[in-house]
Amino acid sequence: MASSNGTVQATTRTVRFRIERSDGPGRGTRWEIFDVPVASGGEGSGSANVISCLQWIAAHPVTVEGRETTPITFDCGCLEEVCGACTMVINGKVRQACSCLIDDYAPNEGDEITLEAMSKFPTVKDLFVDRTRLFNDLKRIKGWVPIDGSYNLGAGPRETPDTQQVRYKLSECMSCGCCLEACPQYTLEVEPSGKGFVGAAVISQARYFNEHGTGSTLKKDRLDVMSGVGGVSDCGNAQNCAKACPKEIPLTESIAAIGRSTTFHRIKQFFSGK
C-alpha cells in the first residue's frame, strides 16, 4: 500500500555493515561484513533503517567475501521506538535500530555502520541479549500501584495536569536498557546475584510509583531498596543515562529526587529506629 510515494525516483547506493556475531553465551565473538543496497533520495520516510537492512541480510545472508552465512539474530518488535526491543550498539552508541535511519548514519556510497550487542546484558546470540535482570529489578522496587483488585471500585485519585505531565514522561520508559548500557556503574553480572546496581531506569520507575497517590503507599519499601546495596548510592553521577535515553526522560532528576527521598528516609529511620 504505502510502500512508495511514487514521486521521486529513488537511487541505490551500497552501505557496508560490520556486525559483531556470537553463536551463543560463552561462544566468543567474530565480525562479519555485509554490503547492503539502500534506496536513497526518496522523499518522505521511504528510506531505509538498520532494521530494514538486517531484514535484507536475512533474505541474502552472504558476506562481502561471498561466503554464505546465517541471518543475523536480533530482537525487534514495533519498529517505531515504543517497544524498546531493538536496542543495540550502533557505531559505538547505544540506541534503537528502528529509528536509526541510514540516510542520517551513512549518507554516502560505501559508508560503514557497525552493529554490536549491548555489553551490559548476557548475549543470547548475535545482537540479541537477555534483559531479564532489568525486569527483575522492577520487582525488587515493587514497581506497581497496589490496588485492591480488579473489581469496580470507582475512579483513582485525581491528579493535577502538572503532576500528570511529570508522571507521563517517566511512564514512557520502555525498559530498553540504553541508560544502563551507557552507565559506568552498571556492569554485566555473569552470575546474577540480584543485588547489583539497579541503574537509572529502575530508580526513575521508583520515583514514578512514589509520585502516585496509591503507589506512594509502598514508598517505604522502595526507599529501603534504594538505600540498600545496588540502590541509588551506587550512582557515580556520570550522567550518561539522561543523554542516552531515547525518550528524553529526565533520569538525572529522578536520581536526584530519589537520592533526596532516601536521605530523609534514612534520617527518619535513624530517629525512629524503624
Binding site: 490496588i147 470507582g154 500528570q164 508522571r167
Partner: peptide, 22 residues
C-alpha cells in the same frame, strides 16, 4: 466506564483537565 476507572486506579497517567479530571 468501569474499565477506565480501573485503569485510573492502576495509575495510568491519563491527560487531565485543570480541575484534575480525565
Amino acid at each position: 466506564p468501569k474499565v477506565i476507572d480501573l485503569l485510573d486506579r492502576m495509575g495510568v497517567p491519563f491527560n487531565r483537565t485543570a480541575e484534575g479530571q480525565r
